[in-house]
Design a protein around this nucleic acid. Structure first.
Length: 916
RNA sequence: GCUCGGUUAGCUCAGUGGUAGAGCAUUGCAUUGACAUUGCAAGGGUCAGAGGUUCAAAUCCUCUACCGAGCACCA
């Protein structure tokens, strides 16, 4: 094997000229460039291999990387890299989302700050140009950051939801669904954002608990002055829109009121008392004022009773009621207080109570939304039943599985989707109105397929031929109306059966957060069935939610979201990747601890990941300081038990990894990798074979150990690669496991096990009994406070044949000076003993221990042992246990009992000896 | 209100019926030659509570409490 020095970039070099610690930054940068130059990420649609594909959940084009992205994309990268190494042709398709409201709001805000202009001052065309400029300037940031993380996306195929091809798909889908009668336009009650000045879908409204005031007021009966009907409301400012008061028909208190009229105080009007089942008898006074224009439920009641709709708010949430000059033009919240005051002045306010209720907030602008009647486009969701069934039957699997229940619940209560937005940044609705009828059409109560068939409107991907006679609908589509096409719209132009689609669609895995289950995942399945007649992906993996050290959601406003780039610069992207994957359980949340110490960002969990990288690096450094090239083939039959044990453990590791991967348990994969390297490889194996690498060692021993080291480490790097791609490339090259120009990421995982055909049982028994014995000897030493002495002699009362040969290793591991073997040894009473799997090992006390302290310790020990002994005895004297438990379980218990008994007599002897 | 999670060491969490585990933190000890980003050890648990099933429960069932999420909401 070739042999290179590991890392030469540090100031802190040891005598061999090797850096003492792994320094990730330059290594990571170098390898990412090498992968790009080597075109390692390209997915080839003409490949013979099986296809494997993932589409990235497109981040907002102006977004900045946060830890959620890091987790999400690391999982995808792990899946992609693993699939490549398993011989699949992998396509990980990246891109970004135009993120309608988010981006437009951001640019508008910047514009306001810079020039004081609003988008309306500029006009649509000029504003859109500004947004495109902004996108070009800031759009690349998150992509660069993903590259820093090591993501193996096929960057040549990067897509954007407003690319020309993509836009064509959006228009096509709209017109397709319109022609199927699934899309219609109508005046409906929608969620209106008074800040963004657009309609929102139900999913974009976040219910938040609020501390409000419930006002109790009274309306006077018209036919009985001095007699009042008491009403409670949280929104007195919409009083001008009241057109009725409703009571429950079953409510006997109000039976006599129904059908009569009460006086609305301002602007003064007579409004009827009506009966409707919707009214809750228990709530407030039991009488509900009806404001159809400003409440969804009231609107429905209004429809049932054919009531007038009086809109008394402007689009931006100000009062619009010239008849009440005190309120006209005021903001809705300011007006609320004035309206209450006006009621009080008129003697109509009874009292005001503090009241906790839920108010819908706009997801983006974070202000209370306003239920508002407006003209919007709606979609009746297509393929609802097929979509629900696909998840129900596990044709599409959800992980964790429980999300499928949430999904089913949502699917069964699905409402039409309001898809139009009163924004400029986005896909303009592909509907044109005949110019001469445009006003009439745009104000029509409803529009649907029939209007297209009559030739009044044009719906399609292209404008009508005589475009000058037509006016295009001004609205744009909800961002998700483009995102829901992502799995296939990224792969081909509309109407084209590309190689890419053939090879890579449907995609294999989708990795995303559960927060966009309805926004995105559900809709993609529906779009897949509707537009491609096929499901868009086979597996959905929902990532954990990342919280801060205090369990709070990470958010910009809390400032508790550390910058992943800063973390990577400090600990390396491999360290961060490994850490996150190791602490993210399937389904649960993650707590990510970060703190500021002396002006520096400290992430203790990531330190572990960084330390792990360093541990591996140093194991390799040790290898290189201990010898160079090896020659010849590995001859398993000539190896020591420690070698064979390690090889067997590697084989077991590969089997266990396969299992964990099959369940998408990445944290388990990481733990297996971590434990193997740190415990099995470094703490046990390397310590056991250290003697073989000393200058004085025999050349054959050195060669064997080096060869096993290289065999195991080179394979281990393949297994670790998906999590720590940069480190594994670097060390594999430096160690000569791959040659210049080769890549670990393109190396196939070996199909055969290392020990194929060789039975390691006997060798493993030897190695493991020595490891076990070493641990027990160390325990005894520690108990007697001689842990640090390396000159302790043990006397082994045993006839185990291999002990003599292995005793140097045992000494090395246990920190013992010498192990004498004497099967007939008669220990003086009270000599401490370790009962090991290679026999009893006595540690004669050189009279150096503190007798009183030892007595106390022994007494404690005796008590503890007696308790265990009693537990075991009780269990075994239980006939039902012996009869019903599995034989091996009973046997384990018997062995245990024997152990307690032996120990009890030993302890008693030792105690007695001390007394003497 | 409905539906799903969760509650295990000081902290973060593993643990699908058979001796309660890991990492971090704490404490003690160690250091010339892989690694102080290290090694060896120690202390630390009524597995949220109550009941049930079982020879045996952290684990299965029921209820309760608290925490979290989603959905629906009463003005």
């Amino acid at each position: 094997m070739l042999w290179h020095h590991v890392g030469l970039m540090s100031q802190d070099l040891d005598t061999a000229g090797l850096a003492k610690a792994y320094e990730p930054i330059s290594v990571e940068e170098k390898w990412y460039q090498a992968w790009i130059d080597g075109k390692c990420f390209a997915g080839d649609p003409s490949s013979e291999k099986d296809g494997y594909s993932i589409v990235i959940p497109p981040p907002n084009v102006t977004g900045i990387l946060h830890l959620g992205h890091v987790l999400n994309n690391t999982i995808q990268d792990v899946l992609a890299r693993r699939a490549r190494m398993q011989g699949k042709e992998v396509m990980w398709l990246p891109g970004t989302d135009h993120a309608g409201i988010a981006t437009q709001t951001k640019v508008e805000r910047e514009l306001k700050k810079a020039t004081g202009e609003s988008r309306r001052d500029m006009g649509r065309e000029a504003f859109l140009k500004k947004v495109w400029d902004w996108k070009d300037e800031h759009g690349g940031i998150i992509i660069k950051q993903l590259k820093r993380l090591g993501c193996s996306c096929d960057w040549d195929r990067e897509r954007f939801t407003m690319d020309e091809d993509y836009t064509h798909w959006v228009s096509h889908t709209f017109s397709d669904l319109f022609k199927k009668g699934m899309i219609y336009r109508g005046k409906r009650m929608v969620n209106w954002c008074p800040v963004s000045l657009t309609a929102l879908s139900d999913e974009e409204v976040i219910m938040k608990p609020q501390q409000s005031t419930l006002y109790f007021m009274k309306y006077e009966f018209v036919d009985a002055p001095g007699e009042y009907l008491e009403i409670s409301t949280t929104r007195p400012e919409t009083l001008m829109g009241d057109v009725a008061v409703a009571v429950n028909p079953k409510d006997e208190r109000f039976t006599k009121a129904i059908g009569r009229k009460v006086r609305r105080p301002f602007p003064e009007a007579e409004i009827p008392v009506i009966a409707d089942d919707h009214v809750d008898v228990e709530f407030g006074t039991g009488a509900l004022k009806i404001t159809p224009a400003h409440d969804k439920a009231d609107f429905e009641i209004g429809v049932r009773h054919d009531l007038e709709v009086i809109d008394c708010l402007t689009a931006d949430g100000k009062i619009n009621c010239e008849d009440v000059p005190e309120l006209h033009g005021l903001d809705r919240f300011a007006a609320r207080k004035i309206a209450a005051q006006m009621l009080e002045d008129k003697g109509l306010l009874i009292r005001a109570e503090d009241y906790a209720n839920n108010v819908g907030f706009s997801e983006r602008a974070d202000v209370p939304i306003e239920p508002r009647i407006s003209m919007q486009w709606f979609l009746r969701y297509p393929e609802v039943e097929r979509t629900a069934a696909a998840v129900e039957s596990n044709e599409i699997t959800f992980r964790p599985e429980r999300w499928s229940k949430t999904f089913a619940h949502w699917m069964s209560n699905i409402q039409d989707w309001c898809i139009s937005r009163q924004l400029w940044w986005g896909h303009q609705i592909p509907v044109w109105y005949r110019k001469d009828k445009s006003t009439e059409l745009q104000n029509a109560e409803s529009l649907d397929l029939a209007d297209m068939q009559s030739g009044d409107i044009h719906v399609g991907t292209e404008p009508p031929a005589d475009a000058e006679n037509w006016v295009r609908d001004e609205d744009v589509l909800d961002t998700w109306f483009s995102s829901w096409l992502w799995p296939f719209a990224t792969m081909a132009k509309q109407g084209e059966e590309s190689d890419l689609l053939k090879k890579f669609y449907p995609t294999t895995d989708l990795v995303t957060g559960p927060d966009i289950l309805f926004f995105w995942v559900a809709r993609m399945i529906m779009a897949g069935y509707s537009e491609r007649d096929e499901l868009p992906f086979k597996n959905v993996f929902f990532t954990s939610l990342i919280r801060d050290g205090k369990g709070r959601k990470m958010s910009k406003s809390l400032g508790n979201s550390p910058d992943p780039i800063e973390i990577m610069d400090k600990y390396g992207s491999d360290g961060l990747r490994f850490t996150l994957m190791r602490i993210a359980p399937l389904g649960g949340d993650i707590r990510f601890v970060s703190k500021e110490e002396e002006g520096e960002l400290v992430c203790p969990q990531v330190e572990e990941g960084r330390n792990f990288a360093n541990k591996i690096y140093n194991a390799c450094r040790f290898r290189q300081m201990s010898g160079g090239e090896t020659t010849g083939e590995l001859d398993v039959s000539a190896l020591k038990p420690y070698h064979i044990n390690l090889l067997a453990k590697l084989d077991a590791l590969e089997v266990n990894l396969d299992k964990a991967y099959a369940d998408y348990k990445f944290n388990e994969v990481c733990n297996l990798l971590y434990e193997f390297l740190w415990n099995e490889f470094c703490d046990l194996f390397l310590e056991a074979v250290k003697g073989d690498l000393k200058d004085t060692a025999a050349d054959a021993d050195r060669q064997a150990t080096l060869m096993v080291f290289d065999t195991v480490m080179s394979r281990y790097f393949l297994l670790l690669h998906p999590f720590m791609p940069h480190l594994t490339e670097e060390l594999s090259l430096r160690m000569g496991y791959i040659s210049e120009g080769e890549f670990v990421m393109q190396t196939q995982l070996p199909k055969d096990s290392v020990l194929a055909g060789y039975d390691p049982t006997e060798a493993q028994k030897v190695a493991q009994s020595i490891y076990d014995a070493a641990g027990r000897l160390r325990n005894v030493k520690a108990e007697y406070n001689v842990a640090t002495r390396r000159d302790v002699t043990f006397i082994a009362k045993t006839s185990v044949d291999y002990l003599e040969a292995e005793s140097p290793v045992l000494c090395q591991l246990a920190g013992a000076g010498e192990i004498q073997i004497d099967p007939n040894y008669e220990a003086p009473k009270g000599t401490p003993v370790a009962v090991t799997s290679v026999g009893e090992m006595y540690m004669p006390l050189a009279g150096l221990i503190d007798v009183e302290a030892e007595k106390a310790r022994l007494d404690k020990e005796i008590e503890k042992n007696a308790l265990e002994l009693k537990k075991s005895t009780n269990k075994l004297s239980n006939e039902k246990f012996v009869a019903n438990a599995k034989p091996e379980v009973v046997q384990v218990e018997r062995d245990r009992l024997a152990e307690w008994e032996a120990k009890a007599s030993q302890l008693a002897e030792m105690r007695a000896a001390l007394d003497a």
